[in-house]
Amino acid sequence: MYSEQVMDHFMNPRNQGRLLNANGIGEVGNATCGDIMKIYLFIVDSVIEDVAFETFGCGAAIASSSMATELIKGKTVDEAWSLSNKAVAQALDGLPPQKIHCSILAEEAIHAAINDYLRRSDLPERKE
């Protein structure tokens, strides 16, 4: 059902855990739907120096979080904002159709975390 990439990121999640020095935290989804994704960012001079995630959800949700954090690590806030759910799904060698929403959740969690950082820095939030 899942690609080798998905299974690899599910079995060996990258950047999993909490970030104590995070200055941007975003949480999306809800337990009723069966998926919650929480992204922690540590941003210095508009660059994502460090990133971590916590996820409640299926294999695809965990793999999408892991892959998304890999794709934005060391990138600028602008680059991270423009990461699309398609790019996450592609990097995972595809997701089953009913699991595409997991990659959308990853994109949304990054947006939420960036906006949290902007809010804390008294900067205007970005719009979708």
Binding site: P13, Q16, G17, I36, M37, E54, T55, F56, I62
Partner: peptide, 12 residues
């Protein structure tokens, strides 16, 4: 161990 591993990963 499986439950623990996934709980360590979960924000809940």
């Amino acid at each position: 161990g499986i439950v623990k591993r996934l709980r360590d990963m979960s924000p809940l």
